[in-house]
């Protein structure tokens, strides 16, 4: 496990695996679209892994399998030692509680206060529905404030979330994930809808918080240079296949990284984010 105070540990390979994916295949629309093609990799605990690849290469689909927002067509997905597709609903709830998910579209509720969005990260720990921040116990509100403080937004706690800027909204979303006290954070292009300056700041914040809390991070990113700054390891996807899997050190050739982005499929229209129709919500 990576020790939080030792910045020199680059690729921690000790300890058990946080995520283990074997021969994962995912097809959509009755097999006409292959989003993931026999993907296999293992992520040890504490690793900061970045997944790169063109739009439509399967990054989102891959991450969404890890907390069962998608079910695999074939292959196995093991997270924190549990066979994800086989989990019962209560078990899935417990697993999801341990996995924070940061979305490109933030996926926070715009019209409620920031603190309420952060508090919703604690839903997995408490029972029963909540409407309004005041329905959460006081100790959770204190905790939510601490998380908001970490992302630098404590003074905005009672402000409506949609009155914040994009970068601030994503920081609220990060605070919500941290509120879960997760062991793993999955971040799906967390800064793709932010401008470059803010992107750097938000990524720094996310990584810093995760290192402090000893959280394993799987993050998909477009900006390779952003990734090279702090990632332990890079995985490159192209058309649903793993085409690069390398630790980030001197041996990593910049050209090999850029190769992931080259060889453009001339017909491959860039596709935007899907609002999936086959998510597997708990309800």
């Amino acid at each position: 496990m990576a020790s939080p105070d030792d910045g020199n540990v680059i690729v921690p390979d000790s300890g058990e695996a946080a995520v283990k994916v074997i021969n994962l295949v995912k097809t959509f629309d009755n097999g006409s679209v292959t989003a993931l093609d026999r993907v296999s990799f293992t992520v040890p605990k504490g690793q900061l892994l970045v997944i790169i690849g063109l739009s439509g290469s399967g990054k989102s689909t891959l991450l969404r399998h890890l907390n069962r927002l998608h079910l695999p067509t074939e292959g196995s997905v093991e997270v924190l030692g549990q066979d994800v597709p086989a989990l019962t609903r209560p078990e899935l709830r417990i697993l999801r509680r341990n996995i924070g998910f940061v979305f490109q579209q933030f996926n926070i509720v715009g019209r409620v206060t920031c603190i309420e969005n952060v508090l919703s990260g604690a839903l997995g720990r408490i029972r029963g529905p909540r409407i309004g921040a005041m329905m959460y116990p006081k100790w959770l509100r204190v905790e939510a404030f601490e998380q908001l403080d970490r992302v630098g937004l404590a003074d905005r706690a009672w402000q409506r979330t949609d009155t914040l800027s994009g970068g601030q909204q994503q920081r609220v979303a990060i605070a919500r994930s941290l509120m879960q006290k997760p062991k793993i954070v999955l971040a799906d292009e967390p800064v793709a809808s932010l401008d470059p300056e803010i992107s750097g700041q938000v990524m720094d914040l996310l990584v810093q918080c995760c290192i402090e809390d000893e959280i394993t991070v799987l993050c998909s990113l477009h900006q390779v240079d952003l990734a090279l700054g702090w990632a332990h390891r890079l995985i490159g996807l192209r058309d649903g296949k793993v085409v690069l899997d390398s630790p980030v050190d001197e041996s990593l050739d910049h050209n090999r990284v850029m190769d992931v982005y080259r060889e453009l499929d001339p017909t491959g229209a860039k596709r935007d984010e899907y609002v999936s129709s086959d998510i597997d919500p708990i309800s």
């Binding site: 907390n67 924070g100 996926n107 919703s120 839903l123 879960q180």
Partner: peptide, 9 residues
């Protein structure tokens, strides 16, 4: 989805 990902029932 965001709420579901926190493990909400």
């Amino acid at each position: 989805e965001g709420v579901a990902s926190t493990g909400a029932g």
